[in-house]
Design a binder for these strands. Sequence first.
RNA 1: GCCGGCGUAGCUCAAUCGGCAGAGCAACGGAAUCGUAAUCCGUAGGUUGUCUGUUCAACUCAGAUCGCCGGCUCCA
Length: 637
Amino acid sequence: MSKIRITLIDGSEREVEKGLSLGEIAKKINISLAKEAIAGKVNEIKKDLNFKVNENSKIEILTFSSEEGKEIFHHSTSHVMAFAVKELFPGVKFAIGPAIKDGFYYDFDVEKPFTPEDLKLIEQKMKEIIKKDFPFKRIEISKEEALNFFQERKEIYKIELLKEITDQYITLYQVGNFIDLCRGPHLPSTGKIKAFKLLSVAGAYWRGSEKNKMLQRIYGISFDQTSKLEDYLRLIEEAKRRDHRKLGLDLGIFSMHDEGVGFPFFHPKGMVLRNILEDYWRKEHQKSGYWEVKTPIILSKSLWIQSGHWDHYKENMYFTKIDEEDYAIKPMNCPGGILVYKCNLHSYRELPLRMAELGLVHRHELSGVLHGLFRVRCFTQDDAHIFMTPEQIKEEIKGVINLTDRIYRTFGFSYRVELSTKPENAMGSEEIWEKATKSLEEALKEKEISYKVNQGEGAFYGPKIDFHLNDCLGRSWQCGTIQLDFIMPEKFDLFYISKIGEKERPVMIHRTILGSLERFIGILIENYAGAFPLWISPVQVKLLPIADRHLEYGKKIGKKLEENNIRVEIEEINEKIGAKIRKAELEKIPYMLIFGDKEVAEGLVSIRKRGKGDLGSTRLEQFIEDIKGEIEKQSIF
RNA sequence: GCCGGCGUAGCUCAAUCGGCAGAGCAACGGAAUCGUAAUCCGUAGGUUGUCUGUUCAACUCAGAUCGCCGGCUCCA
């Protein structure tokens, strides 16, 4: 029997018999690898485990621990779900059923939407299918045969998909008696799916377009081990426990009301938090050479026509009338900033001119997208507009990246970066867009930051870099954005006087770092589960007297703490110390100071740290010194 | 905006087939003055989101409407 050479991912080579399947090769490499094998890659192309290798190749065996393996695993589970749905609801038509970041979904066209009870039935059926360990069979047929096959079954969505495939041969996959159009690869058999759960049903448009029919989408997740499913479900529970909408209300940070849907109300504790963030933000921006401005919320329609918002952003804007004249509530801060720039004649010596604004903008978002502080109809952008010469672009962008990085780190966030290019409704020439996009790319490359490109997702006036924060549960949130703009300066005829005394056109950067103060506060609440780091905690210290007669001492030390700019509250409720502690713990206050006869007599305080417990007693002066140091450090623990 | 689910006291949740709306926590009053996550007793709290209808009778059934939740689309 002839032999072939295979190269493994670690670079090692070995000789095997020609015509072995990937699964058999896996067994030769390592028996436990063969057990875990999901599919494989031959010369970078994903293949089923029963794919026979007939020539020298680079081989990789995929398991659940790789992203690609996981994806195949989820995708196969979606086929199992579709099979179950076919068994239980014979009339359904099948759309698409891909793997997604967390699990998979399948879109079905059904007469009646699925109910939660239906999900249980489907799960039950899936269990049966998995138990029977059906093999996934790959079928290769001509495009014409495939068309006939799906036409007979009136699978209109599959036919639509098929028509777009230009390959001569089409692959189908069969599990039991469910045959689906699919590129594969798949698990060898359904028995590999050790744990799965159907999570939710939701309406979803065919091909994501509002113009198309709404289908029923079932979301699910699956794992190769039961314990992983349990971990995942725990994570979902944990996320629910941290929900900023609930915590925000409980901790007195903000509230929402029917009287102003999408417009958050900030409560006293929330304002403390917000003001701390703003103070910190201002300090950082002063250090980085920014000036701060404030521009009005309502501005004349003519300004929005000139800026292009009237043509490109009207759907999202609110309007009003003043003295019979049309006005708009600002959805962005840039036109206001531009008017400030235009007040003076600017020399090249002033550039780059960095103008920051904590600007309150209003945007009409569709009612269905509103979500706590994460998605609102009015929010405060930590905006800035930088006016500069074309030569300064790259350095300025790098400067913004540095500032962003520093601010995110302060809160303990890592992040990833995306670059969005020219959208369909863009203003300005192809050439300008190309130049702008290139500057952003170059800055990222020089900073050695890896990024993902989103084709066609830029703003209408320019390409952008987006920053996505990762929180402690592994979720990500869009916050910062850097948008390069050659168009507004043109529209508003901005200029500066160059070295040789001529008028030159500046370039603009629009940028945010926190993104929206409101959203950022929501993220902080969830990331810290409401237990804020000391330096941003609305209340830093709670004073807990053992008995009523110690209240007076408490007021004295409260005053001393206040004199040292420490945010303090005293507990005056008539309760036992255990109850007072419990209350303070639930309020997630970082430090509790407890004092009774002993402390009053000796001028001490007993320190209790949130989540940690009793730290013993110390002199008040010592505590003040320590806590001031800790606040100064902006420690995130 | 679209699809589905849900709206009962400040919060968390009960109320059988359509038959007088109830509990815990919180609040308030009182007793106890207590040493590191809940002391005990009492009081008050409601047009069951809103409107319309069916019915002898509606928290319960139907329709409309507002809001919330999960998604789709969109996004800071």
